[in-house]
Amino acid sequence: MRKTIVSVSFLLLTAAIFFSACVNEDSIKYQRYYSDGLDVYKIHCQNCHMDDGKGLAGLIPPLTDTTFLKLNRKMLASYIVYGLEDTIKIHCIEYEGKMPAEKHLASIDLAKLLTYVTNSFGNKQGIFDVKEVEKNLNDYIKANN
């Protein structure tokens, strides 16, 4: 009996340690993605969408429309890689500009960038994984062929 109690509690303890290590690793990964993502944002996006994500008047949409970004989460990677030239409604304002394609970003950089964007400017969507980026881009290619 005593033995079982000891071994069960040992098991529980190790499980707890593993679990917390996992959680920790996740949050470390998130932090890393987020801060690297900011660097990518500064280089490739800030010129247009501005440091505060507010865009430029009726010309460049802000990245503060949390509903739009949530509803279009699957499309975000493709907007960046293939550009966007559409009529879109952000915060009830129509934008019909043109965002140039940014073909030179690796999936990992896209994941970091999107982690930054979808968790800044009022957004709170959690981590954007490399796998998710690659799946989204593949789906986009399939749908458009």
Binding site: N47, A57, L59
Partner: peptide, 15 residues
């Protein structure tokens, strides 16, 4: 108008 680099920031500042 189609300038992707510094113009949007300039326009924003001039605005």
């Amino acid at each position: 108008t189609s300038c992707p680099s510094i113009c949007p920031i300039m326009s924003k500042n001039l605005l």
